[in-house]
Write a protein that binds this DNA or RNA. Structure first.
Length: 597
RNA sequence: GGGGUCGUAGUUAAGUCGGUUAUAACGCCGGCCUGUCACGCCGGAGGCCGCGGGUUCGAGUCCCGUCGACCCCGCCA
């Protein structure tokens, strides 16, 4: 016999599937949802009915209504149904403590089957089995989104957006939209381009961020702007990077850095307690970029554990080990990591660590084990007792400890040792997962030197203001100039970054010149900004947070894809829609585009 | 552009040194079952071993190529 799909008719929901409790006992209710699971006892049929609010057990009893009981025999997973019935308290001993609605069930008087469903390729009930391969989940994303863990993430995402809006509105901010079809700018990430039909051969770019528009809004006097906005960058993906992602974008006029910090700390102190029930200590600690690099090797330090980097350039540079001496002669540095109590680490494990740091260009990883009968290390014989004493003191190195050492250029040593620090902490379980360490990293360099191109690039972006006391250095030693730029860091992840901007045209032009952007190029690319700066641009600055990254931390997600409803694969494709896809040749003709073979 | 992990029923996995009919669990289908809640019991169906080529008497297994998912380096102002 064939299944009959029924119309909804005049039926209206009285409750959702998460709302019924013991207090509703005896009430006639009408609920609708998806069949999560059917348990057919021949006589009784139980159905776990699911919607986005929860799960309610409904019972079909032939003695109550034989018609609906008979229809219920045809129900399968993910059929869409509506049931009318009575809320009854569950009999003694049959309460389900796992469910918020577990004290009651709905005894069905009438059933309408609103839609059938193919058997889903994977169980919607996540208790069913192990994790499903991600390509299957992405192809059937609409089914994956039905599952509890993804749904929880989407619900939190919605709430966080609302809390952000509430916070900024209460602080007097305006939410203003900026264009998605805009002008390509040369700096920064690769642009996503959109061809113009009306102007053949010309292209819009999707914004990497609303940076210039929010600065223009400050010139317009729309002090205290924010926006929750999509941004686009055509770069390769990572576990925490998608080609389109969401920023909480903020800009303010007439502010000091400290004023902005206070407001943004307030935002975090609003969101995190709501989401996680934790306290957020304010003010956040501040670390200069150079201190962060020296102590943690990275510009986004995870301060939930110690194991800081130790500079051993002095003592090891005076040792008899050729490697170390040569490094110092070549202007390099030698730094170490004291891994407390890991003296027993095996050769095999040390090889793994050596391989790990080689990813970041480290040529090798020297190790010293502290034992009662002296140091154990292939290099021990090159280091005399005086130097050992010096090193032991500098690194707090004693019996039972493992000292890992890397020599090379400062950048390389910091990067590889900083990554190793985090890697080891994860492996050794040194990270307290229930802690949330916010901090600011400040005073970034304004420029970084591009060896290949032989010129300076902006570290943040070209509109970042230098520290006032460093402005004279622009003429003499640009590499030393510090920027009024800052990052907010949480548990070793950069969750936001910003700067006080340049608001004077003369300073902006000077920076462009240092960046090798000539006056003509500057005019062509940023002329509108340079013009605007000459019409009474106020001092201003701002910040942008990565909403997706914040959500990753709030949800404990390992992949950014788990906090985005419809994410893309690592090759930036969408397995659900099969985008990107070829287009009709007529569309290309209309755009004046011919594909190269 | 580069390095790595993986790809076997719908799903998750096993598959030895290359050997005869490719296993299991869950799911699915049929039957039984009035208190289950990841129900239970009995029975059944289900495979382009990602794809293409090669080696071999013989390939899920070895080799080459290719496609796809994931992680990382480069890249990401």
């Amino acid at each position: 016999m064939t299944l009959t799909i029924e119309h909804l008719g005049q039926w209206q929901r009285t409750h959702n599937c998460g709302s019924l409790t013991r207090e509703h006992t005896g009430e006639k209710v009408l609920i609708m949802g998806w069949v999560l699971r059917r348990r057919d006892h021949g006589g009784l049929i139980f159905v776990d009915l699911r919607d986005r609010w929860g799960i309610t057990q409904v019972v079909f009893n032939p003695e109550r209504d034989s018609g609906s009981h008979q229809k219920a025999e045809d129900l399968r997973s993910e059929y869409v149904i509506a049931v009318r019935g009575e809320v009854i308290g569950r009999p003694q001993g049959m309460v389900n403590r796992e469910l918020p609605t577990g004290e009651i069930e709905v005894l069905v008087d009438d059933l309408r089957i609103l839609n059938s469903s193919l058997t889903p390729p994977f169980a919607i009930d996540e208790r069913e089995g192990p994790e499903v391969a991600e390509n299957v989940r992405l192809k059937y994303r609409y089914l994956d989104l039905r599952r509890q863990s993804l749904r929880d993430n989407m619900v939190l995402r919605s709430l966080v957006s609302k809390w952000v809006r509430d916070y900024f509105y209460s602080e007097g901010f305006l939410e203003i939209e900026t264009p998605f079809l805009t002008k390509s700018t040369p700096e920064g990430a690769r642009d996503y381009l959109v061809p113009s039909r009306v102007s053949p051969g010309r292209f819009y770019a999707l914004p990497q961020s609303p940076q210039l528009f929010k600065q223009l809004l400050m010139v317009s006097g729309y002090d205290r702007y924010f926006q929750i906005v999509h941004c686009f960058r055509d770069e390769d993906l990572r576990a925490d990077r998608q080609p389109e992602f969401t920023q909480i974008d903020v800009e303010m006029s007439f502010i000091t850095r400290d004023c902005l910090f206070g407001l943004m700390e307030g935002l975090m102190a609003d969101i995190f307690p709501r989401a996680l029930g934790i306290d957020v200590q304010r003010p956040f600690p501040r670390l200069t970029y150079s201190e962060s690099m020296a102590r943690f090797g990275l510009d986004r330090p995870d301060t939930r554990f110690a194991m800081e980097l130790v500079d051993l350039t002095g003592p090891l540079g005076r040792s008899d080990a050729r490697l170390f001496v040569d490094t110092v002669d070549g202007g390099g540095v030698i730094k170490g990591l004291n891994v407390k109590g890991q003296e027993s680490m095996s050769r095999r494990e040390l090889d793994d660590l050596t391989e790990f740091v080689s990813i970041y260009g480290a040529r090798g990883l020297a190790w010293f084990k502290g034992a009662q009968d002296g140091w154990k290390s292939p290099l021990a014989k090159y280091i005399d007792d005086d130097l050992r004493g010096e090193i032991a003191q500098a690194a707090d190195f004693s019996d039972g400890d493992l000292l890992l050492v890397i020599a090379g250029s400062e950048d390389l040593v910091n990067e590889s040792l900083g990554q190793l620090r985090v890697h080891l902490a994860q492996r050794l379980g040194l990270i307290p997962e229930d802690q949330y360490h916010f901090l600011w990293v400040v005073d970034f360099p304004l420029f970084e030197y591009d060896k290949d191109a032989g010129r300076f690039n902006s570290m943040h972006h070209p509109f970042t203001s230098p520290l006032e006391e460093d402005i004279p250095l622009l003429a003499t030693d640009p590499g030393k100039v510090r920027a009024r730029a800052y990052d907010m860091v949480l548990n070793g992840a950069e969750i936001g970054g910003g700067s006080i901007r340049i608001h004077r045209e003369d300073v902006q032009s000077r920076i462009f010149k240092l960046l090798n952007i000539g006056p003509e190029e500057a005019r062509e690319k940023f002329g509108f900004l340079l013009d605007a700066l000459q019409y009474g641009a106020p001092p201003h600055g701002g910040i942008a947070f990565g909403l997706d990254r914040i959500l990753m931390i709030l949800t404990g997600a390992e992949s950014i894809r788990d906090v985005i409803p419809f994410p893309k694969t690592q090759r930036a494709t969408c397995l659900l829609t099969d985008a990107p896809s070829p287009v009709d040749p007529d569309q290309l003709v209309e755009l004046g585009i011919r594909l190269r073979k």
